[in-house]
Amino acid sequence: MLLYLPIAEWPVEMFAIFGLGAAVGFVSGMFGVGGGFLLTPLLVFAGISPAVAVATVSAQVVASSTSGALAYWRRGAIDWKLATYLLTAGMAGSGVGVWVFAALRRFGQLDLVIALCYVVFLGSVGAFMVGESLRALWSAHRGEVVPPRRPSPTGWLRTLPLQVAFPRSRLEISAVPVIALGLGIGFLGTLLGIGGGFLIVPALIYLLRVPSNLVVGTSLVQMVATMAFATFLQAAANQTVDLVLGLLLMVGGVIGAQFGAEVGRRLRGEHLRALLGLLILAVGARFAVELVVPPAEVYTISRVVGGAP
């Protein structure tokens, strides 16, 4: 059944979009990530303009992260102080992201920057995850005990100014890397239409050495707040959030996530990380191919944009 989207101004097959939301929701439930890095490219591929896709997926990320954040809240697995630092910086980064997004669109370089960011960030994070999980699997195979990492943040994090105590995480670290992380994720998330879970979770684990039982809940709170702010800004400044498209994706995503989570519980952590790493690498590679392979049509047209598309 074809459905005309009021903001995207484009008819879509309703059940296909619903299914897309469910499939990405499945992946996000399975791996505990938002899935924006899959959803935004797929929507663009389906004919939605990048501006509408990015803005609408930020709303979808809010929905898909909310139920998870609430579940972690009930279990008390959130470092609220750390989350507050991250999301405050995240909102500031998101504001810059909306502005840069509009500027790049005017100059016709939005697609290029999005593609480059996908290649760089997905490529490096995906490679890191695959490598790390393969090492873990190899060690397990040889019967070695992997030494538990993370007793305390090392070296340079202690030497930076603005030392702040995060008692819940039993951490005393500089606020500088925390704020930089929040800013960076907020900026990239808004620019690329992703929640940034695949960036912030490894950063909290390996960089800030946050205890693993608090990492996911805290990052979910940060994502809900930052992406909610991004959604609001995109709607208010660019009028690019499509509520009908968003609702289809959200409902599909929430349902798909339940089944994904079920499958995720049956898989080992190293296997999950290796699979997610491969998936992230594949999306990054897809963008790399697009940048490198000569296009069939070198010309593109777009309307001259002032504010709204």
Binding site: A59, Q60, V62, A63, S64, S65, T66, S67, L70, V224, A228, T231, F232, A235, V241, L243, G246, L247, M250, V251, V254
Partner: peptide
Amino acid sequence: AVAMALVTG
């Protein structure tokens, strides 16, 4: 849009 996303989630 934000309210809809929060309520759906």
